[in-house]
Structures are given as structure tokens and as C-alpha cells.
């Protein structure tokens, strides 16, 4: 796969990365919607129902494969493109660059790595338990995401780590959304400012939305 991708043009790589990224962005919205059901004071009934729908519906199952492919493509291309970019300047400047840039745009690789590490942690915490690769903690059934979530978020350091990861994701998305539009050639004076604002608002909503859940469990329910 790596060999195939490296034979593509620099622009093709970026377009694929942008499309995969935009798909992941829409997925995050759906995921957030389900997570916010945890704020419902119903003993996790709505959340569990949504989670089990996502786990059993056959259309969602197909999308799950597309989602994994999207993650894989975005991550592999990200690594590859970053490698090529490093190689394009073998000897670096003595004085580091002072040019004005789009906010956070220079830290896409760094924030990407944090999100990737979080993704691995997230797989160990939930997905691998569900599919039986990792044993669930004592007293929690492998598909009981609600109890698992409550247990994880009742640990303050875990909640803090979780929030830090979502701040990194928000920083990543703040540049990513408008950047994807630019890469796809969709930059026009008519709507680019709106894209930038909507992208920033969306990324802020993702960070705040996902962070509310652990804070709520830590301070309100616990």
C-alpha cells in the first residue's frame, strides 16, 4: 500500500488525505452525538441503545470498515507526506522560520501523533474489549460501554489525559477543515471566510463536547 501511495502525485496524496480527513470529521460529529447521551440521567439507557445500534446495524458495520480504511489512509499518508516534506529540506535554517502562518498549521504532525496515540488507547479501552482481544475489567461485560465509561472517567488522571487529547484534536481540526477545502481546490472569496469560521466553530464544539462528558461524570455524577 505504501509503495502504491508513494507513486501518486503530491497533489493526489493530499486530495486523498483531505477526503479521508473530511470523512473522519463527519464521523466525529456522529460519535459526539452518541457520547452526549451519557449526560442523560437515565442510567445509560439511551447511550447503550445507541451504542448497540452502532454495534449491530449492518449498514453501520459496512461503514465501520470504511471508517477504519479512512483512518488508515489518513494516518499512512500523513506519515508519508511528512517524511517527504522533511526530505525536501535536508539542511535546516540556523535561525528558525519567523514567517506568519495560518494558526496551528505548523503543528499538524504533532497534534496528529497525539490523536493517533489516543486512538490506540481508545481501541484498547473499548473496541478490543468488545471484539474479545482484551479482557474486560472485573464485573463489567465486554459490550457494556456505559459502565466502562463511568469507570474510566471516575479516574481524574484519565479524564485529564482524555481532555488534553481532545484539545490536541481541536487544534488539529481548526486548521484541517479549511485546509481540506483548499486542497480540494475549493477556495473562493465568496465562501472561504465562512469555511474558516465554521471549521473553527466545529473544532471548538468537538473539543468542548467531548470534554464535557468526563467533567460531568467526575464532578456531577461521581
Amino acid at each position: 500500500m505504501n509503495l502504491l501511495l508513494s507513486s501518486f502525485s503530491s497533489l493526489t496524496n493530499k486530495v486523498l488525505m483531505a477526503l479521508a480527513g473530511l470523512f473522519l470529521v463527519t464521523f466525529l460529529g456522529v460519535h459526539l452525538g452518541i457520547n452526549l447521551l451519557l449526560l442523560n440521567n437515565d442510567g445509560g439507557r439511551a447511550f447503550t441503545a445507541a451504542a448497540s445500534f452502532m454495534g449491530t446495524n449492518s449498514i453501520i458495520k459496512v461503514f465501520e470498515i470504511v471508517l477504519f480504511a479512512g483512518f488508515l489512509l489518513h494516518i499512512i499518508l500523513g506519515m508519508m507526506v511528512s517524511g517527504q516534506n522533511k526530505a525536501a529540506r535536508p539542511s535546516t535554517y540556523v535561525v528558525s522560520n519567523h514567517s506568519a502562518t495560518a494558526p496551528f498549521s505548523k503543528y499538524m504532525f504533532h497534534t496528529g501523533i497525539i490523536v493517533f496515540l489516543f486512538l490506540l488507547l481508545h481501541f484498547f479501552d473499548f473496541y478490543f474489549i468488545k471484539i474479545g482481544l482484551v479482557a474486560p475489567p472485573d464485573g463489567i461485560a465486554s459490550h457494556d460501554f456505559y459502565s466502562r465509561t463511568l469507570l474510566l472517567f471516575s479516574t481524574p488522571w484519565y479524564s485529564l489525559l482524555y481532555i488534553v487529547c481532545f484539545v490536541a484534536l481541536g487544534i488539529h481540526l481548526n486548521h484541517a477543515i479549511q485546509s481540506a477545502f483548499q486542497t480540494l481546490g475549493l477556495n473562493h472569496s465568496k465562501y472561504m471566510d465562512a469555511v474558516k469560521v465554521i471549521g473553527s466553530v466545529y473544532s471548538l464544539l468537538i473539543t468542548v463536547g467531548f470534554s464535557i462528558v468526563p467533567l460531568f461524570i467526575l464532578f456531577y455524577r461521581h
Binding site: 493530499k14 514567517s99 506568519a100 495560518a102 483548499q182 481546490g185
Partner: peptide, 28 residues
Amino acid sequence: FGNCSNTYACEAECPKGISVVNIARMNR
């Protein structure tokens, strides 16, 4: 040459004020 990560440092430093809209047009 490297790939574009849309930092727009190029536009900021271009002595002739070339806009990154041209990069989007090229992509398109």
C-alpha cells in the same frame, strides 16, 4: 520539492503578494 500543508507562509512572504487562491486553482 515538498508537499503543501497550507500554512500559507508562502503568501505571507511573497514579495509580489501572490495569493494561495492560485494553489487552490492548481489543485482544482
